[in-house]
C-alpha cells in the first residue's frame, strides 16, 4: 500500500509540474508583447519597463519559470495588473463565495442524485426508471446558464422567493441568511451533475446487484431493504465516490458560467473578468490553484478507493 501511495503521489506531482509549465508557457504564447497587451496602447515607456521588470520578462525563459514556480511554492503568485494587489489576495476574495457555492451544490448533488439513482435502479425497466433516466439525460443536455436564467425569471423576478444576483459575505450584515443568495445558483450548478451521479448510481447499483454475494444474502433470508442498503448500496457507492474527482472538474467549469449569470463575486467570475481585462497573472494563478486542487482531490479519491475496496489491485 505504502509503495502505491508513494508512486501515485509522485505521478500527481509530475503532472502538476508539467501542468505548471503549460500554465507558465501560456503568457508567452499570447501573440504580441504581453506587457503592451496588458497595459493598453496608452502606456508610457516607464510603465512598460516597470511591469516588464516586475513580471521578470527580461530574464531567460527557463530562469523565469524557475523563479515563477519557486515563488508559487512559497505562496506568491505575483501581482494582479488590474487591482495591483497580490494574486493570492484576489483569489482569497473570491474563495468564500466559490467554496460555499460548491458545498451547497454538492449537498444537492448527493442529496438528489444518489437516492433517486437508487430508486431508479430498484424499479429497473419500469416507467419510474425510464422516466428518471430520461430526465437525467435531459438535464445533462441543458446549459447551466439557461437553467440559471430561468430560475432567476421564475423564482427571483416572478415569485420573489430568492435574490437574483450578487452575494454579500455571511460575515457581513445578514449573517447566515445571506446563504439564500446561493440557493438558485447552486441548483443551476447541481442540475447537470446531479443527473450524472444519478445515472452512475443507477448503473453501479445494477452492476452490484448481479454479484454472487447479493444472491447469497437474499438466500440467507436477509430482508430486501437490508440487502439493498448494506450489500448493494454500500458497494455501489464506491463507483460513485470514484467519480467525484470528475464531478469536481465539471463543477469548476460550470461555476465559471454560473457565477457570471448570478453576478456572484467568486473565483470563476474573476477568471472571466480577468480574461476580459487581460490580467494574465490572475488567470495563471487561478488556473494553477485549481489544477492543484483537482490533482489533490483525484489523488485522495484514488487512494480512498483502494482503501475502501480491498479487491482493487495495487499495481
Amino acid at each position: 500500500m505504502l509503495r502505491y501511495v508513494i508512486r501515485r503521489t509522485g505521478a500527481a506531482i509530475m503532472t502538476l509540474i508539467a501542468a505548471s509549465i503549460v500554465i507558465f508557457a501560456f503568457i508567452h504564447l499570447i501573440p504580441g508583447d504581453p506587457v503592451y497587451v496588458m497595459l493598453g496602447d496608452g502606456a508610457t515607456p516607464d510603465q512598460v519597463a516597470a511591469l516588464r521588470a516586475r513580471l521578470g520578462l527580461d530574464e531567460p525563459v527557463v530562469l523565469q519559470y524557475l523563479i515563477w514556480a519557486g515563488n508559487a511554492l512559497q505562496g506568491d503568485l505575483g501581482h494582479s495588473v488590474f487591482f495591483e494587489t497580490p494574486v493570492t489576495q484576489v483569489i482569497a476574495d473570491g474563495a468564500e463565495t466559490s467554496i460555499l457555492l460548491a458545498t451547497m451544490t454538492m449537498v444537492w448533488i448527493v442529496g438528489f442524485g444518489i437516492p433517486v439513482g437508487v430508486l431508479a435502479a430498484m424499479r429497473q425497466g419500469r416507467w419510474v426508471d425510464q422516466g428518471l433516466s430520461g430526465l437525467a439525460m435531459l438535464l445533462a443536455s441543458v446549459p447551466t446558464f439557461w437553467v440559471g436564467l430561468y430560475l432567476i425569471l421564475i423564482f427571483a423576478a416572478g415569485l420573489g422567493w430568492f435574490p437574483s444576483s450578487g452575494y454579500p459575505s455571511i460575515f457581513e450584515e445578514g449573517g447566515l441568511a445571506n446563504l439564500r443568495y446561493l440557493v438558485l445558483p447552486s441548483i443551476a450548478l447541481a442540475a447537470p451533475n446531479a443527473a450524472l451521479i444519478l445515472r452512475l448510481t443507477r448503473a453501479s447499483m445494477l452492476d452490484v446487484a448481479r454479484e454472487d454475494y447479493v444472491r447469497t444474502a437474499r438466500a440467507k433470508g436477509i430482508s430486501p431493504t437490508r440487502v439493498v442498503v448494506r450489500h448493494i448500496l454500500r458497494n455501489a457507492l464506491l463507483a460513485v465516490v470514484s467519480a467525484f474527482g470528475f464531478t469536481f472538474a465539471a463543477l469548476i467549469s460550470e461555476a465559471v458560467v454560473t457565477e457570471t449569470v448570478f453576478a456572484l463575486p467568486g473565483v470563476g467570475r474573476t477568471v472571466v473578468q480577468s480574461i476580459l481585462r487581460r490580467d494574465y497573472p490572475v488567470i495563471q494563478g487561478v488556473i494553477l490553484i485549481i489544477v492543484c486542487l483537482y490533482l489533490v482531490i483525484n489523488l485522495l479519491v484514488d487512494l480512498s478507493y483502494r482503501m475502501l475496496d480491498p479487491r482493487v489491485e495495487l499495481e
Binding site: 501542468a19 503549460v22 501560456f26 469548476i252 467549469s253 477568471v271 480574461i275
Partner: peptide, 17 residues
C-alpha cells in the same frame, strides 16, 4: 496533463491565446 485542466478553463486559455 491536458486533462488535469477543467475543460472550460482549457478552452478559455486557448481563446485568450
Amino acid at each position: 496533463v491536458l486533462m488535469s485542466f477543467p475543460s472550460l478553463l482549457l478552452a478559455l486559455g486557448l481563446i485568450v491565446i
